Simulated assay, not measured.
Amino acid sequence: MAEITFKNNPVTLLGTEVKVEEKAPDFKVLANDLSEVTLADTKGKVRLISVVPSIDTGVCDQQTRRFNEEASSLGNVEVLTVSVDLPFAQKRWCAAAGIENVQTLSDHRELSFGQAFGVAIEELRLLARSVFVIDSNDVVTYAEYVSEATNHPDYEAAIEAAKAAN
């Protein structure tokens, strides 16, 4: 498992770490309208999945805005942001931030995504900052588990991976 810290304190990740070239695990999260979303709902597209601890905090805000800006240049790539924030909070934040190219998804109910991708932080019931690219055949082509949850991911590497998978 990836070793992750949150504000320099080690945390325990629940679930199984995903690796490049593995089939992406399925998950069940909630869209902003409370409908369920699974991996199969985006089948046939490349997915860039940006995972943040809480969307309305500094680094998470910047990460979501950055991928929102990049989304239009990625072609047939669906950009998803997953956090444990309530769907209502995500919807309100997106409206206030002018986010239109990223779909926010909530893992608050079951931590299904967090456990499937090995990013659920046991001590905090948050998700560890990470980025995944899944190709149109549901194969993981990029996985970054950010070692310190308050740091930024490698945006350029994730964007290049999404373009290469397209």
Rank of each mutant, 00 (worst) to 15 (best):
A2F: 06
E3G: 08
E3M: 13
I4Y: 07
I4E: 02
T5L: 02
T5I: 07
V11A: 00
T12F: 02
L13M: 02
V20Y: 11
E22T: 06
E22P: 03
K23P: 01
D26E: 03
K28G: 05
K28E: 15
V29M: 03
V29G: 03
L30P: 04
L30S: 10
A31N: 13
N32F: 09
D33V: 13
L34V: 13
L34E: 15
E36N: 14
A40D: 15
G44H: 09
K45W: 11
L48K: 00
I49M: 10
S50I: 04
P53I: 06
I55N: 04
T57K: 05
G58L: 08
V59H: 00
V59W: 02
C60Y: 04
Q62L: 15
Q62G: 10
Q62P: 03
N68T: 05
E69Y: 14
E70N: 08
E70K: 15
G75K: 03
N76T: 08
N76C: 06
V77A: 05
L80P: 06
L80I: 07
V84C: 12
D85C: 09
L86G: 11
L86V: 09
P87S: 02
F88A: 09
F88T: 07
R92Q: 13
C94S: 15
A95F: 08
I99D: 03
N101E: 12
V102R: 04
Q103W: 12
L105C: 07
L105Q: 05
D107S: 09
H108S: 12
H108E: 08
L111K: 12
L111A: 15
S112G: 07
F113I: 02
F113S: 01
G114W: 06
G114K: 02
V119I: 04
A120L: 01
I121W: 01
I121D: 01
I121T: 00
I121N: 00
I121Y: 00
E122G: 07
E123I: 00
R125Q: 13
R125W: 09
R125K: 12
L127C: 02
A128L: 06
A128S: 15
R129E: 00
V133Q: 03
I134P: 10
S136P: 05
S136F: 07
S136E: 14
V139C: 05
T141Q: 11
T141H: 04
T141C: 05
Y145N: 01
V146F: 01
S147R: 14
T150I: 11
T150E: 10
N151F: 12
P153F: 03
P153T: 04
Y155H: 10
A158Q: 11
I159Y: 11
I159M: 11
I159S: 07
E160D: 14
E160A: 11
A162M: 10
K163G: 05
A164T: 08
